[in-house]
Nucleic acid binder design. Structure first.
Length: 953
RNA sequence: GCGGGGGUCGCAUAGCCUGGCCAAUUGCGCCGGACUUAAGAUCCGGUCCUUAGUGGUACGAGGGUUCGAAUCCCUCCCCCCGCACCA
């Protein structure tokens, strides 16, 4: 039977049996697992599949641990990408249309994709089909899409935001964004032709007061105002004169429009030549000294404000610029400035930067041997080094007024605040580098007013959230470090947008709630989604949601909304039954936003008992060690993979790809051979079911112990979501033991064989449910395998396994020796077990060992030599030295444990003489070294406990 | 730069937290054998070097702690993820 047929057969049966439709109640413990819904601008791909498979495996595993499991799923449509893509289709943009064509969409269909609604219909439908074929154990009744296209969800989000506002988790403010002036929109990283990663950077724009105008200069280091000596300007450049508020400012020609975007009223009055400003004096902020305007070459009228304040003590550029002028009277004359006055200017020490001293810029310029201000390479480096060093180590000196004694980092904020309060400066933003939008325009910084923020920066809220994190289980536990860091670092999050799909802000419908903010507590919505689907829109009110999820009174809600109170109570109970969720499975990239946001919002919206119980994070799927990407041609959709390989093969390969935080690796070679492996298992079950002998064999117990041990380990691994480990144990390692078992007993015991078949079938069911189900039916077992118990077992103690290990080891050693000796067909094999005194020696050593496992040689020899038979004294001393002291004291507790029990090696080996003779096809005998004579004697000296000497000829 | 996770015998993976049955798991690949007209599949054996056995070298590089280090500590090199208004 081909795997596809098997898969659809069982999928149909599961659906008919409503195997995954979860209802609250019953005696079982509940388990609620979920994963982030996918964004619906394309088909599900390998990356999605990995995370969803993990959730699915957990769901199946927990079900097999006798729990009532809920695993729901939904689809995300909020935000700009769908709208933007639809817009591009509308405009007939070629790359967008080509992309859709590559997805296999017809031309007529693509035309429909100019409407966002079409995306939100088409892709979720396909995703459901794909996931069903993938064998996902999802309760589809509870599915939904986000945004105002789905009224119940829309209303749910409105309730959330009203409640957040009431709880003062939402605050209002302004916010700098990267802005495309051409398109009039915010430009995220993926909307850029160049300049990815560049962001708005906050500067302090210093104002220098003149007679009837101001010069403005942007600085990153406002604390250095105390060291200002002059003002730099581009003598060759042209500047703009503009009215800003009630003042007249002189600045670069680019700047008025930037200021305007940043919320200032600006009117350009005319222009000023840089040359005309040189030699003039302006009053510097904070220090209120008159400073002269001087020309420089590093100043560029097209960058920033085109004007720079000069702090030669701490800025290499400024220092070098000053030195250059002071070195050239001629240069000064040509600009018409007073050379004598320029010569008097000296760096003013303002901060102690530790090992770089109090005048770091001059020192550094001299040290690096900078020629002049055109020596850009060296100057840039000096600037970089100095900036970081001062920020991290600098402490302000006495000369720096009210901030003296403060570290630079603190002083910077204080100075900035004071200057702004005194109207001697404003806060101003520049991009960290040039950004070009996809609409070919140079981007600028815009200040968005009236922006709403989720106050993730709030200390109290963060504290509560940290508490929530503490109570959570994380998989793998290593991920906790990252979470702890993120909670510290998260700042207020701008949570509304001017454009895109989504839910309108309840109190201001000019704003749409942003996509990361409308997906923080929706796991709660799953619990009742199917009940709210057909409710009239006018009943979807805050009252309703508050009575289901919050502290609302159900009777009052019932009267107000004309919904039977029993219904509301049912819904409320269902929420209380499933919530909180036990586990959310996600990619590790969501730690720093979505998962943390979700935690914050849970603490804001729900009582402590409803806070999430677990997060599992995983890496990003690689394909044969490479990142998956469309351009590399290794981009696979879930659909094509399932079509090409079958669901179980994809599941098996993905499960084998990796676990933990590391990036899982999809191996094509594994995928190619996985189908065969699974088929072999089915065949194996078919051939072996009902077989086996009825009587018992000494090795049976050993294999039972191994099976139990394997089951125990597999359960432990699965509890930690390590399904690869668990599958390897059951599907790859246990069969290795089984092989050995067969080799030893010839025919397996019937009961054991059945347990073996059943155990592996149940054990692999979370990973490859279809094949497992088929195998289960071949075993003539009752019910679905997906509802059976996952294999249970217990850890077996070493003592129990030791005998079989001895045989295995001896077999391997014998083979190795034959190999080395190049004996193809031995005529005789004698296994010589170690004499009793050697055992006693090893045990004595164990007894004498101190806490760290150390044994003193003379002590051991002294106490033990008398017990050694006379004829063995010499050998005995050697043995003690070589074996006991070399190995025993240096080996750990487990090793010592092994030798504690005196086992009868001879009996064990004798019981397997038949086994050995069959393998080597020659007579095999076992003797104790004490009885070794003539030709066997020399060899017998090599015998050691659990390591018999082996004589071959 | 900052924060997090990593680097293991051709490739991929386990082991590391809690040091000692660790020349180190498992899958793939490769080599040899059986079966077969042949191929595939399957099964068996091998896959660091050396040796009628217990040796050497080796877990990114270099130091350190220890009787003992893949495992603990330090330094360096390299790879991945994230650094925000974006799903």
């Amino acid at each position: 039977m081909n795997p596809k047929a098997i898969e659809s057969k069982w999928q149909k049966k599961w659906t008919e049996a409503k195997a995954y439709e979860s209802e609250p109640g019953g005696d079982k413990e509940k388990y609620f697992v979920n994963c982030p819904y996918p964004y619906m601008n394309g088909y599900l791909h390998l990356g999605h599949a990995f995370t969803y498979l993990r959730a699915d495996m957990v769901s199946r595993y927990q079900r097999m641990q006798n729990k009532n499991v809920l695993f729901p799923f939904a689809f995300h449509c909020t935000g700009t990408p769908i709208v933007a893509a639809a817009q591009r289709v509308e405009e007939g943009e070629k790359t967008q249309i080509k992309a859709l064509k590559q997805m296999g969409l017809s031309d007529t269909l693509i035309k429909k994709f100019s409407k966002p609604e079409e995306w939100t219909k088409h892709f979720p439908d396909k995703a459901i089909t794909d996931l069903k074929k993938f064998g996902a154990s999802i309760d589809w009744r509870r599915s939904f899409i986000t945004t105002s296209l789905n009224p119940p969800y829309d209303a749910f989000i409105r309730w959330q935001f009203n409640k957040l506002l009431a709880g003062e988790y939402l605050i209002k403010g302004s916010f700098p964004v990267v802005w495309c002036p051409k398109r009039g929109t915010v430009v995220g990283d993926h909307d850029r032709l160049s300049g990815e990663g560049e962001t708005p950077q906050e500067y302090t724009l210093l104002k220098f007061k003149g007679d009837d105008d101001y010069l403005v200069a942007a600085t990153l280091r406002p604390e250095t105002v105390f060291g200002q000596t002059n003002i730099w300007i581009d003598g060759e450049g042209t500047y703009a004169k503009a009215k800003v508020g009630n003042e007249t400012w002189i600045m670069s020609e680019e700047m008025p429009s930037k200021l305007e975007l940043q919320g200032h009223e600006v009117e350009v009055l005319g222009s000023v030549e840089g040359r005309d400003l040189i030699g003039k004096k302006y009053q510097a902020p904070e220090i209120h000294k008159e400073l002269m305007v001087l020309p420089s070459k590093f100043c560029d009228a097209s960058i920033g404000s085109g004007i720079v304040t000069s702090v030669p003590s701490d800025s290499p550029d400024d220092y070098q610029g000053l030195i250059d002028l002071q070195n050239s009277e001629k240069e000064c004359k040509s600009w018409g400035i007073d050379f004598a006055e320029v010569s008097k200017l000296e760096p003013i020490a303002i901060l102690d930067s530790g090992e770089m001293g109090t005048l770091p810029a001059p020192d550094l310029c001299k040290k690096l041997g900078i020629k002049d201000q055109t020596d850009r390479g060296k100057l840039e480096k000096a600037k970089q080094d100095l900036y970081l060093h001062s920020f991290n180590n600098g402490v302000m000196l006495e000369s720096s007024g009210f901030i003296s004694g403060k570290p630079v980092a603190e002083a910077r904020e204080m100075v900035k605040t004071k200057l702004v309060e005194n109207s001697e400066a404003i806060v101003y933003y520049e991009l960290t580098g040039p950004v070009k939008s996809r609409w070919m325009a140079d981007c600028k910084v815009k200040i968005v007013d009236n922006q709403w923020f989720l106050a993730y920066g709030d200390e109290k809220w963060t504290e509560t959230t940290e508490l929530a994190l503490k109570s959570m289980e994380l998989y793998p536990s290593k991920a906790r470090n990252q979470f702890e860091y993120v909670l510290q670092w998260l700042n207020n999050w701008a949570c509304v947008r001017e454009k895109g799909l989504g839910t309108k802000l309840p109190w201001d419908d000019n704003w749409v709630i942003e996509s990361l903010s409308d997906s923080t507590i929706y796991m709660a919505f799953y619990t009742v989604a199917h009940h709210l689907k057909d409710l009239d829109e006018d009943k979807l009110t805050d009252t309703l949601f508050e009575s289901i999820f919050g502290s609302g009174n159900t009777k009052e809600a019932s009267e107000e909304l004309k919904i039977p109170q029993a219904d509301i109570l049912d819904w409320r109970n269902e929420f209380n039954y499933w919530y909180p969720y036990d586990l959310r499975v996600s990619g590790k990239d969501l730690i720093q936003n979505h998962l943390s946001f979700s935690l914050y919002n849970h603490t804001a919206m729900f009582e402590k008992e409803m806070w999430p119980k677990g997060f599992a994070v995983n890496g990003w799927v690689l394909v044969d060690g490479e990142k998956m990407s469309k351009s590399k041609g290794n981009f696979f959709t879930l659909k094509e993979l399932v079509t090409n390989y079958s669901a179980d093969v994809v599941r098996f390969t993905l499960c084998n790809a990796g676990e933990g935080l590391d990036d899982p690796n999809w191996e094509l070679s594994f995928a190619e051979t996985a189908g065969k492996k699974l088929e072999n298992w089915l065949n194996f079950v078919k051939e072996n079911r009902g077989k086996g002998r009825r009587d018992s064999h000494p090795v049976d117990d050993w294999f039972r112990a191994i099976m139990s041990d394997t089951a125990y380990k597999a359960t432990k691994a699965s509890d930690r979501l390590k399904f690869r480990t668990s599958t390897r144990l059951l599907f790859f390692e246990l069969p290795q033991y089984y092989k050995w078992y067969l080799q030893r007993v010839g025919e397996p015991n019937a009961e054991i064989l059945h347990e073996y078949l059943s155990m592996i079938t149940r054990g692999i069911a979370p990973v490859v449910p279809h094949i497992a189900e088929e195998a289960w039916s071949l075993l003539d077992e009752e019910g679905f395998v997906i509802n059976q118990q996952f294999p249970k077992g217990k850890e077996s103690d070493i003592g129990f396994l030791i005998g079989e290990d001895l045989i295995k080891q001896t077999l391997e050693d014998t083979k190795a020796i034959l190999n080395i000796a190049k004996i193809e067909k031995p005529s005789e094999i004698v296994l010589i077990t170690s004499p009793k005194w050697k055992w006693e020696a090893v045990q004595a050593a164990g007894d004498l060992a101190d806490g760290r496992g150390q044994v003193k040689l003379n002590q051991l020899i002294g106490s033990f030599m008398p017990q050694i038979p006379n004829d063995s004294k010499k050998v005995g001393a050697e043995f003690l030295k070589k074996w006991v002291l070399k190995d025993i004291p240096s080996l750990g507790p487990e090793w010592q444990e092994r030798y504690k029990v005196l086992i009868d090696e001879k009996a064990i080996l004798e019981s397997s003489i038949d086994f050995f003779s069959k393998i080597f096809d020659c007579p095999v005998s076992v003797i104790n070294a004490e009885n070794a004579v003539s030709r066997l004697e020399p060899k017998s000296k090599q015998s050691a406990p659990l390591r018999p000497a082996i004589f071959v000829s």
